[in-house]
Design a protein around this nucleic acid. Structure first.
Lengths: 120, 120
DNA sequence: CCTTGCCTTGACGCCGGTGTCAGGCCCTAC
DNA sequence: GTAGGGCCTGACACCGGCGTCAAGGCAAGG
């Protein structure tokens, strides 16, 4: 499978696939032409990558998941390295949630002060 | 007050104050030298700007708040334009919270599957 | 032979708030 | 006069996941 076909099947672009390769996430072989050649399993890997990116992971975080999938596991999340990233990411997300929640409280308070001003 | 002094008093840098000016948030007068001259009220304005930025607003969102403060209000939040931004921002924040919450659920599920795998 | 369409590498653009450097003016103190 | 510090403008760097354009190779069909 050439890069264009994989890109279309994965719902993305050749540029994006080359970017993933550049960052060590996929390693296609090469035809005699120099064209990248992908086997069918890579489709699954690309889907995993895109799902993780959509969840806010950075490309570097994703490497362990891909390695785990490639090692033959049915899910990329079950390996120790992946789990470590999961825990770190969970802490990050909790931090963001705390910040956003605080901001939300301030927002709501400010809106209430407008519609129903305090009389101190 | 020159830019260096205001920067120090506001806990930021001259570069940052020039950036705010470039984006229409502050309008210092000029000495005969060409040096920017700030009066004491600007300190309050800069604090407001920085508080809003820290809460995730963009510089363009902040203009109404500054205008509201400058109009003599004790808070920058009480004017109609500010309130509109507040409501828009509240919706944004709620969106982010929803996304992050969904991600958090997935994370927790995935971690549980590791430590306590399902036996289907 | 020429077009068409895929592929290749390389490189710049974006976004936003700031850091930082370059080159030069202003003022004070020695 | 000169050294030092603050000011000025202008412009590039950053980060990250791509979009997009450039210049060129390869294959197939007319």
């Amino acid at each position: 499978m050439l890069i264009g076909e994989l890109a279309e099947r994965a719902g993305t672009s050749p540029r994006t696939l080359r970017y993933y390769e550049e960052h060590g996430l996929i390693h296609p072989s090469r035809d005699a032409n120099g064209y990248r050649q992908y086997d069918d399993g890579e489709l699954r890997v690309v889907h995993e990558i895109r799902a993780l990116l959509a969840d806010g992971y950075g490309v570097d975080d994703i490497k362990p998941f891909v390695a785990c999938l490639r090692a033959g596991n049915s899910s990329g999340h079950v390996c120790p390295d992946s789990a470590a990233v999961l825990r770190r990411r969970l802490a990050e997300v909790d931090g963001y949630l705390d910040q956003l929640t605080a901001v939300r409280h301030r927002l709501q308070t400010q809106l209430e002060e407008i519609t129903c001003p305090m009389t101190p």
